[in-house]
Simulated assay, not measured.
Amino acid sequence: MHVKRTRVHGIPARRAAPVGAFFTAVLAAILLTACGGGSGAKASQTAAKVNKEEITVHQINFVLQRQPNIKPEQVDAASRQILERLIDQELAVQKAQDLKLDRDPRVVQQIETAKREIIARAYADHLGETAAKPTDQEIKQYYNDKPALFAERRIYNLQEINIEAKPDQFESIRAKLQGAKTLPDFLEALKADNFKFVGSQMVRSAEQIPLNNLDAIARLKDGQFIMNGHPNGLTVLFLAGSQRQPATEAQARASIEMFLLNQRRAELVAKDIKSMRDNAKIEYVGKFAEAAASAPAGTPPAAAPAPAVSDSPTGASGPVDNNELAKGLGIK
């Protein structure tokens, strides 16, 4: 199991790049052109000329607006850096066009797909603007309903062990865990019986853990664990230690307000999409018609329940969704 690493994007390497790399540059250039510039732009709005093409101040501002937490005194330096990246991007686009990569069917399809996603997102944003802001009482209620996130917020030092095992071996593994005095003792017992496992350790604050897992983890005391079965074996989540760092309602207010507002926006979009589906003529063809007949649109298939192991008296009750947990904890 590996901790997910954040990739830092920079200037593309000076070597032959796959079609997807050129697509990124082509699409970004299309978006920036749509936001300003082009051959008809006024000279005063031109920031640089790259061969016969212009890069405009509007393009720089468009990128600048998408950069979070830039201080006023950093704007000029950031603008110059953005301009240099746009120059590199324009050169890549021009080279791609010379090679006729913009006509490659895969590139055309990706551009069209991205265009549809952008238009659909614009619809969602437009509809979301009609959502009512949460009231003071609703914000206070959410704060009170989520003590693990706020009033009883903790920083968790978690150790996760994923064990390959069959369902009939779960009880034996649980007995080993209950009988071990320390986590290393438990791992040695697994090795002795030739169980394969991988482990990881991470420090996560309450808000970095998916909401559907947080309550179960918050019930743990230091030194306790949760054991949960899944199709490929068992996951043991051990709380090595924790530190209380509560957040006041005033500190959490802005985050709660944004969360509730985004939630309402998503509900509006889902409701409107459902209404449109109900009133649209949708015809499935071929193999998709057979699938649609057995699973009506809008009804997700039920997930098969994973075999679960009850927690020990010294552990905590309540299974944890391992897939969501892994995603929330930033592990693969």
Rank of each mutant, 00 (worst) to 15 (best):
R121S: 11
K166L: 03
V269M: 10
K191Q: 08
A293H: 00
D168L: 14
I30H: 09
N162T: 13
V203P: 08
K52I: 15
V8D: 04
A218I: 02
R85N: 14
G40S: 14
I163S: 00
D125W: 07
G229V: 08
L83M: 13
N279T: 10
A165T: 07
E267R: 08
E73W: 09
K133L: 15
Q89V: 06
A165P: 00
F259L: 12
F170W: 14
F195Y: 15
F195L: 01
K287C: 05
K332A: 11
S275I: 04
A270I: 09
A21N: 15
I60P: 00
A280C: 05
T33P: 10
A151Q: 03
R219M: 11
D98M: 12
K71M: 15
A291Y: 12
K146W: 06
E53T: 10
P307R: 01
D222T: 07
P231M: 03
V198F: 14
S242L: 02
N262L: 11
Q178E: 11
K71E: 09
V198M: 15
A254G: 11
G128A: 08
F170E: 05
T182P: 01
L261K: 05
D193C: 12
A148W: 12
K274T: 05
G241W: 04
K4L: 14
G37T: 04
R153S: 07
G315T: 00
V236N: 00
Q97Y: 05
R106T: 06
V309S: 04
D272T: 12
K95Q: 13
Y143E: 04
A308Q: 05
V26Q: 02
A92Q: 14
N323Y: 10
R80S: 11
Y143S: 01
T130R: 02
A192H: 06
K95N: 10
P210C: 06
E84S: 07
Q81T: 09
Y156Q: 03
V236K: 03
D193R: 06
V93D: 00
A41I: 05
D136A: 12
K196I: 07
R103M: 10
L27G: 11
Q67L: 04
G328L: 03
L177W: 04
Q141V: 12
F186R: 02
R121P: 13
E283A: 09
A180G: 01
Q97E: 14
V19K: 10
M1D: 06
R204F: 04
E54W: 14
M227D: 08
E138W: 06
